[in-house]
């Protein structure tokens, strides 16, 4: 499958003295659900901004290597044009909401693109349904809950129908239920073909969805792979252990104690089934002995 995003030896420094990203070499496949994790200040946000073209176009700074989105170098395309392919939801998503009402907020990007009124209304209607905000068109943005504002921020970028959506810690300000709802929405979008890239500190939230995990540490790409490839390696780094899902901490400890490999635990249900299977197998062994 062709990659949606490619980092080719990409290094970046906001100022001359310190590299925010150091020789990043990674490829994010089209239609994948990729999670970026790492300790605070590791360079996760910079990586997201590089995909959106804001690094280096908006921030300036020094660059080596390149980032390609759909085989186009992000430095050879304006941020406005790149926004048609990459939708970005920033960490402080509330600052991203600039209009007074829900409808105006969603229409904002389309108005900037100079789209005809009829098409704007049609797209706004469609995207409101997609993110579950139908019926709230005339509500004032300031009166929405945190989860609704997050959905609105997603709707604001989805309305441009980008193939890629990048979200920087989308659930950091949400309650657990709101976080689950946001990830379910992202999963639905992903199953509709949208490439999803998410920055997440708490990997337990994305266990069921993540297809690829990138671990960033001090600006470098430490690991890249599936959950089962990456999570066991993270245990070696104390600063990364907080991101480890409890379920996987238990799994890895059990594997070490029992000297046996379990399948990927993406949910408590998976873990339960795996453990029951193991117990049943052991009973069989005991009986035959």
């Amino acid at each position: 499958m062709k990659p949606a995003i490619e980092f080719n030896g990409f290094s970046y420094a906001y100022r001359q003295d310190k590299l925010a990203l150091n020789n990043i070499q990674v490829s994010i496949p089209k239609g994948s659900f990729t999670v970026i994790t790492g300790p605070s200040g590791a360079g996760k946000t910079t990586l997201c901004l590089a995909i959106a073209g804001a690094v280096p176009q908006y921030f300036g700074g020094s660059v080596a290597g390149n980032v390609q989105v759909n085989q186009t170098d992000t430095r050879n395309i304006s941020m406005h044009d790149l926004a048609l392919h990459v939708g970005s939801v920033l960490q402080d998503y509330e600052s991203q909401l600039v209009a007074m009402t829900v409808e105006e907020e969603i229409a904002f990007g389309l108005e900037n693109m100079g789209m005809a009124e009829h098409d704007i209304q049609e797209r706004v209607r469609r995207v409101l349904q997609r993110v579950g905000l139908e019926g709230l068109e005339q509500r004032e943005v300031s009166s929405l809950s945190g989860g609704q504002k997050q959905r609105l921020a997603i709707a604001g970028v989805l309305v441009l129908e980008p193939e890629i959506i990048v979200l920087d810690e989308p659930t950091s300000a949400l309650d657990p239920q709101g976080a689950v709802q946001i990830y379910e929405l992202l999963h639905t979008l992903n199953s509709q073909g949208v490439t999803v890239v998410v920055v997440e500190h708490d990997l337990s939230q994305v266990l069921s969805y993540a297809q690829q995990v990138l671990v960033i540490h001090e600006g470098k790409l430490l690991y890249c792979g599936t959950l089962s490839e990456v999570l066991p390696c993270m245990i070696d780094y104390p600063e990364l252990q907080t991101a480890m899902p409890i379920l996987w901490q238990v799994k890895l400890q059990l594997e070490e104690a029992l000297e046996r490999k379990f399948a990927d635990w993406r949910s408590v249900e998976d873990a339960k089934q795996d453990i029951v299977r193991f117990i049943m197998q052991n009973k069989g062994v005991c009986r035959s002995a």
């Binding site: 959106a52 804001a54 908006y58 304006s78 941020m79 406005h80 926004a83 048609l84 970005s88 920033l90 402080d92 600052s95 991203q96 600039v98 409808e103 105006e104 229409a107 904002f108 990007g109 389309l110 108005e111 900037n112 693109m113 100079g114 789209m115 005809a116 009124e117 704007i120 209304q121 604001g156 970028v157 441009l160």
Partner: peptide, 25 residues
């Protein structure tokens, strides 16, 4: 000030100020 900086960047990311003719509902 931080909010305004974030907002300025997000406006760029949403095509505000592009050369295209601005539409309105």
């Amino acid at each position: 000030v931080t909010k305004s900086e974030t907002m300025a960047m997000s406006l760029e990311l949403r095509g505000f100020g592009s050369q295209r003719q601005q539409a309105s509902l």
